[in-house]
């Protein structure tokens, strides 16, 4: 048996053929989906955040309809669950968790980090969010209420974090570099330092 005849390859080829024959997905659809999956990373979410920081109209769109906001930035949301965006620029701090599994806004943040999938994070984020944030060295302004968003169903949620102090006049590109995946989950807050 040669390498290109191993069983998994033959199975994959047969599956692709059936999907094409039944009109479910063409070879091109599958190639596009693979590209989309491979290009998805926290850098995409960071671009959305940076744009929202400099453009109030985009910020309003992002908070109203995250999917549409991502599409206007050239991120393909085809086949992805609807994207909801939680506003951490206001008085409440949101923290995202999926207690049931590891639901994550992959289209804009890529693969979920290992800790997001861990049983410890999932169990503790809903019960002791302040303790979890303290372990990330995240200090919120005194009296900031925390709201835990358990992502259990058909939406995927990301956080729009607060723009750090000392970034006045910065370009969108320079701002985007500050935004890390944890900032868009709510375990950390971006800093300019």
């Amino acid at each position: 048996m040669s390498l290109d005849e191993i069983e998994s390859e033959r199975l994959l080829g047969a599956l692709r053929q059936v999907l094409a024959d039944k009109g479910i997905a063409t070879a091109r659809d599958i190639a596009e989906q693979i590209t989309q999956t491979e290009t998805a990373s926290p850098a995409q979410g960071a671009r959305l955040v940076a744009r929202a920081w400099v453009d109030d109209t985009f910020r309003a769109l992002m908070l109203r309809d995250g999917t549409m906001a991502a599409e206007t930035m050239g991120i393909s949301m085809r086949g992805a669950p609807p994207l909801g965006v939680l506003d951490n620029t206001g008085p409440v701090h949101h923290l995202v968790v999926c207690t049931l599994c590891s639901c994550y806004p992959r289209a804009v943040l890529g693969y979920p980090p290992f800790w997001f999938k861990s049983a410890a994070y999932r169990a503790r984020a809903v019960r002791d969010p302040r303790g979890v944030l303290a372990e990330w060295n995240t200090v919120l302004p005194e009296g900031t209420p925390i709201r835990v968003v358990d992502s259990t169903a058909d939406y995927r949620w990301m956080v729009l974090p607060r723009r750090p102090a000392g970034t006045g006049g910065w370009s969108e590109e320079r701002l985007a570099v500050l935004v890390r995946e944890g900032d868009m989950v709510g375990v950390t807050c971006p800093t300019a330092g």
Binding site: V126, R127, P129, D150
Partner: peptide, 11 residues
């Protein structure tokens, strides 16, 4: 727990 809240998708 004395403070804080949760927001969850429920059918």
């Amino acid at each position: 727990v004395a403070e804080g809240g949760l927001l969850v998708e429920i059918y």
